[in-house]
Design a protein around this nucleic acid. Structure first.
Length: 425
RNA sequence: GGAGAGGUGGCUGAGCGGCUGAAAGCGACGGUUUGCUAAACCGUUGUAGAGACAAAAUCUCUACCCCGGGUUCGAAUCCCGGCCUCUCCGCCA
């Protein structure tokens, strides 16, 4: 959420930013209009309240002295009625403003490339060597099914398409990967490990920006109005909602493994084969709560923390700075990390590292007290470190051997009970 | 699921219809004293919104004692609904 004061002072800047994100800027004028109405109502209403308080005090004085106050009481009653009608108008206005405000996207940072879509993203880094294969590398769904570690026919029988059933060493690989990632981030990168709830309430979903805009993309449990987390970002960023942190507490680094649930409404027909795009996947998330003046440095180091996973796994990847048109609703700046999948013959997004500045913090009312005792909004950041299915894809496709087996990267072998190769079972 | 108890400022905890934004204590901050630390003493100590001011400082007003309604001239205080916490019972991984 943007600061209404900021919108009031910089309407054109806001409109331009919205346009760059390819959303409708018309609501800005509407907000300002409603805001003007709102403030004048508040002004009148408060004057009335002031008068009422004054009169009530008079009543109290008179009664204390034993005098009759019915005249003033009558008058005050009328003021009360006026206040009530003002408040009713306000009660209508305020949710309207708020609702519009919640749908205004964050303003992109100055160095974000302005663009229409993913084609305008900028590759800022590539890492690793393109591996040479003796044979044409198979796509992961074939590797997985030949090794009997991935069974998409049965998972779709159980749940439908877009769900994964891993078996044997495939399941073990999954567990190995998120254990390895959590250990890396906690031991070497200074993150505190969390294990949050997988169902969250509407307030939490609104706080990080998934609601109200993206409700159709979320799995919702109807009787309780709880949502399955689309990412650990939601429960973890909301941990300190409505809190005031000490400046000594910052920065806070959290990492958490959770499954992630996404309906992927609107992406039908995209990435239908294999496990590139699924409704449920595992992910290790990195979340940072930091002082505003450090947040862009923190974004760089967060990105580095996520990259480190791929480096240790020996997987080729590139880092892409997203253009305004490809960036998510809440982000001010965002890097994607894309791993090379030789079987699928393309780069796959495995992480999205974003600085939200104070956009989420304002929604969740998360502040800190600085050295001078001033209250300020923190900046929030997060990034995947990493999303598992696509990492698994890259491993299966990159490390497949001509006999159909897959060798396990060294760093994962301890987590695989010493297994070095997944061979046909 | 059944039966009770309760949610007040950073914390503990009073108040249960009218100068109560809220006693007292603790903590924190500033000062005095002190060779240093400690102690003692004095003082300060919430947040948000609206308005005034060119702006900051500042000032005025309004709101906030879990949330939302209601009663009343007036609500932290009374009534109703919700959420949450705790205790006991039942059920259960």
């Amino acid at each position: 959420m943007l600061d209404i004061n900021f919108i009031r002072a910089n309407p054109d800047k806001v409109k331009q930013a919205i346009t760059h994100k390819h959303e409708n800027a018309a609501s800005v004028d509407r907000i300002l209009e409603l805001d003007t109405q709102r403030r004048s109502l508040i002004h009148i209403c408060e004057q009335l309240k002031s008068r009422r308080n004054e009169k009530s005090r008079e009543v109290s004085e008179l009664k204390k002295k034993g005098h009759d106050a019915s005249c003033i009481i009558e008058e005050t009653k009328k003021i009360g009625d006026d206040i009530k009608s003002m408040e009713e108008q306000l009660k209508e206005l305020e949710p309207q403003i708020n609702n519009l405000l919640l749908r205004i996207p964050n303003i992109p940072a100055a160095d974000v490339p302005i663009g229409k879509d993913a084609n305008d993203n900028v590759i800022v880094k590539t890492w690793g060597q393109r591996k040479a294969f003796e044979i044409t590398p198979l796509p992961h769904w074939e590797v997985g099914s030949l090794l009997n570690i991935l069974d998409l026919e049965r998972s779709s029988k159980i749940s439908g398409s877009g769900f994964i059933l891993l078996k044997g060493l495939g399941a073990r690989l999954e567990r190995a990967l998120f254990s390895f990632m959590l250990d890396l981030h906690t031991r070497e990168h200074g993150y505190t490990e969390l294990f949050p709830p997988f169902l969250v309430n509407r307030t939490s979903m609104t706080g990080t920006g998934q609601l109200p805009k993206m409700e159709e993309d979320m799995y919702r449990t109807a009787p309780d109005d709880l949502f399955l987390v689309p990412t650990a970002e939601v429960p973890v960023t909301n941990i300190h909602r409505d809190e005031i942190l000490s400046c000594k507490d910052l920065p806070i680094y959290y990492t958490a493994y959770t499954p992630c649930f996404r309906r992927e409404a609107g992406s039908y027909g995209k990435d239908t084969r294999g496990i590139i795009r699924v409704h449920q996947f595992n992910k290790v998330e990195l979340v940072k709560l930091v002082r505003p003046e450090t947040s862009y440095d923190e974004l760089e180091s967060l990105l580095g923390n996520a990259e480190r996973v791929l480096q240790l796994l020996g997987l080729e990847y590139r880092v892409v700075k997203l253009s305004t048109g490809d960036m998510s609703f809440a982000a001010a700046k965002c890097y994607d990390i894309e791993v090379w999948a030789p079987g699928a013959d393309k780069f796959l997004e495995v992480s999205s590292c974003s600085n939200f500045e104070d956009f989420q913090a304002r929604r969740i009312n998360l502040r800190f007290r600085d050295e001078n005792g001033k209250l300020r909004l923190v900046h929030t950041l997060n990034g995947s470190g990493l999303a598992l299915p696509r990492t698994v894809i890259a491993i299966l496709e990159t490390y497949q051997q001509k006999d159909g087996s897959v060798s396990i990267p060294d760093v994962l072998q301890p987590y695989m009970g010493g297994v070095r190769v997944i061979a046909r079972q």
